[in-house]
Amino acid sequence: MDRLGALSVFVTAAEARSFTVAGRHLGVSSSAVGKAVSRLEERLGVRLFHRSTRAINLTSEGSLFLERCRRILCEMEAAELELQQTRAHPTGVLRVSLPLVGMLMMPTLSAFMRSWPDIELDLDFTDRLVDVIDEGFDAVIRTGAVNDSRLMTRSLGEFRYKLVGAPAYFEQNNAPQTPADLMVHRCLHHRYPSTGKLEDWFLVDESGIPIENMSRKGVSSAIEPLIYMVERGLGVACLPDFAVRDQLAGGTLVSVLDNFVRHTGAFRILWPSSRHLSPKLRVFVDFMAENLFPDHVS
């Protein structure tokens, strides 16, 4: 930046043919302009101006250098203008890693693509622990705590789990009135693909004691098959509310035992630490924070 500043001083002085006039344009003294030019000449090893008590004139080397400097400064101005325009109209590829359950975010991601058509989303769905920086991701969306000091983070919102089933299923099997009633129901479970463990339903009884050893009718390592099975009356499942929001609103699923389910979670978006977000990443972070969970204020 010191070199660019020196070039700007040189160009201003050359065009004004006066250190005094250049100083007025730049808001500094004429002696400051003269010293900046002298330091530039010393670094370059050539004389840029013929000086007299009445005027300054470019040397042949100074004239050649002036044209180069003008091109450099014009390129800088063009780059700044391009970035300003990019901020208004972000473009480019945005690599984002999401958990497998992130497939259920597709309505929000599709809305982002419609709102910002010049940004190409490159989405990687996996539950493995990715290295955001080393693997070249612009951002990752995950649940759980953040332990990497190299990353910035922003909350996208919290969600709750709901115990859901199809109306027809509960008509045939009687809707459970207490968590203990689930022992005779067909329970469909989610298995974490990364660990092979079943996801806990975090159910408690009337005394607040955790309920364990639920029946097991089916298991899936992805959420979508569980939604499919539950909608078709094959059993009950404990699923995140955002995953079954449309089904609950449309009446194809109903929730039961809401007061006994203690399972909650939160999504966060993380990206490499940087003083300035790229425009495409900035609009993506803002859009997801505002639209994934509309009722949540981040």
Rank of each mutant, 00 (worst) to 15 (best):
D241Y: 11
P193W: 12
D200S: 15
F202Y: 13
K217F: 09
R191N: 07
F202K: 08
H189N: 09
I223K: 11
P240Y: 02
W201I: 00
I223H: 11
G235M: 10
G208V: 00
E199N: 07
S207M: 01
L203S: 00
L234I: 10
S221W: 04
E206Q: 01
L203D: 14
G233T: 12
S215H: 04
E231Y: 12
L239Q: 06
P193E: 13
E224L: 03
R232V: 05
P225H: 06
L203F: 00
W201D: 05
M214S: 03
M229S: 05
P240N: 07
L234K: 15
K197V: 04
H185A: 08
E199G: 09
A237H: 06
R232Y: 12
E224Q: 05
E231K: 15
G235I: 01
R245M: 08
G233Y: 10
R186Q: 10
L198F: 14
F202D: 14
I211P: 00
I223L: 11
R191I: 03
P193N: 05
K217R: 15
N213M: 05
L234E: 15
D241C: 15
A237F: 15
S194V: 05
E206A: 00
I227H: 08
V219H: 05
I211A: 02
I211R: 03
A243M: 09
A222V: 04
I209N: 12
R191W: 06
I209T: 04
T195C: 06
S194A: 06
A222Q: 14
R186W: 13
L234F: 13
M229W: 14
I227G: 04
S215G: 01
P210N: 02
K197C: 07
I223C: 08
A222F: 10
M229V: 07
I209D: 05
E224I: 01
P240A: 08
L239C: 10
M229D: 11
A237N: 10
W201F: 04
S220Q: 14
E199L: 14
V230P: 01
M214A: 00
Y228M: 11
K197H: 07
I223F: 09
F242V: 03
F242D: 13
R232F: 12
V219F: 02
I209Y: 07
C187I: 14
P240R: 12
E212S: 01
K217L: 14
A243N: 08
I227V: 14
P210R: 01
H185L: 06
R232P: 07
V204K: 05
E199I: 13
R245V: 09
L198S: 07
D205A: 00
Y228L: 14
S207E: 03
R216S: 15
F242R: 01
S215L: 06
C187F: 14
H190C: 03
M214R: 15
V204Y: 07
G196M: 03
P240G: 09
S215A: 08
L203H: 01
L239G: 02
S220W: 05
G208W: 00
G218F: 15
K197E: 09
K217D: 13
R191E: 05
P225D: 04
L226H: 09
